[in-house]
Simulated assay, not measured.
Amino acid sequence: MYKIAVVGDYDSIYGFATLGLDTFPVADRKEAEEKIEALASQEYGIIYITEALAAECKNVIEKYQERILPAIIQIPGVSGNTGDGVQGVKNSVEQAVGSDILFSNN
């Protein structure tokens, strides 16, 4: 069975531990990139990462976008929602479905 990890600043991710998820607080981009690489090589099927940190680690995240596992999903942090996480999910759905499911003809 695959595990779920959450990577980001401590204040943004500590609550996820109460849900049984493995949390990995990191202090900077270098530490985050190393942690993502390490988690991807282990049995983690999903890696949640704060949007602010994901913006700094784009090269590492892009490396895993075309792979089935792990799924790297952006989540808002305590600093707020940038919209990048929602846009990433929307892009993935568009790619899978073949069209923009939020498009309206009204």
Rank of each mutant, 00 (worst) to 15 (best):
T82G: 11
F103Q: 03
E51D: 07
Q42T: 02
G80D: 05
V97A: 03
G98P: 01
Q65P: 14
K30R: 09
G83A: 09
A40P: 12
S104C: 01
K30P: 01
K63D: 15
E31C: 13
P76M: 11
L21F: 15
V89F: 04
E62P: 06
N81Q: 11
N106W: 09
S104A: 04
L102I: 02
K35S: 08
I68F: 07
C57E: 03
I49S: 03
L19Y: 13
V78Q: 13
S79T: 13
Y48M: 14
E94K: 10
G80S: 11
M1N: 08
G83K: 11
E31T: 03
N81C: 00
V86S: 10
G8L: 03
K90P: 09
Y14V: 03
T18R: 13
Q87R: 15
A5K: 12
A55Y: 10
T18N: 10
I73A: 11
L53F: 14
A38M: 07
D84A: 08
V86L: 10
I49T: 05
E34P: 01
A71R: 15
I101M: 08
Y44N: 01
Q42S: 14
Y44W: 08
N81P: 12
L69P: 12
M1Y: 06
A54Q: 06
A40R: 15
A52M: 06
M1L: 05
T50I: 01
N91S: 11
A40N: 04
G8A: 03
I75R: 02
P76L: 08
Y2G: 00
K90M: 14
D22N: 08
A52P: 00
I61L: 11
N59R: 15
G98L: 03
C57V: 08
I36H: 01
G98W: 12
P76F: 06
E43L: 02
A96L: 02
A71D: 09
A54G: 05
E34A: 07
Y64A: 04
D84Y: 02
K30W: 00
V26K: 13
V78M: 12
I47Q: 15
G88Y: 12
Q95D: 13
N91E: 12
L19M: 00
G83F: 01
T23L: 03
G20Y: 14
E62D: 15
G98K: 06
A96F: 04
A55V: 02
I101K: 03
L53C: 01
K3C: 07
G83Q: 03
F16D: 03
Y48I: 06
V86W: 10
I4F: 00
Q74A: 03
A71M: 07
G8Q: 02
E94T: 04
N81L: 05
I72V: 06
L102R: 08
A71H: 15
V7C: 11
T50M: 08
Q74P: 13
K35D: 03
L102E: 10
I68G: 02
G88V: 08
Y14R: 06
G45K: 11
G20T: 09
E94Q: 10
G8R: 05
D11Q: 05
K35N: 00
V97I: 00
D100H: 06
F16P: 07
A27C: 11
Q87F: 10
G8W: 10
I68H: 11
K63M: 14
N106A: 07
F16W: 14
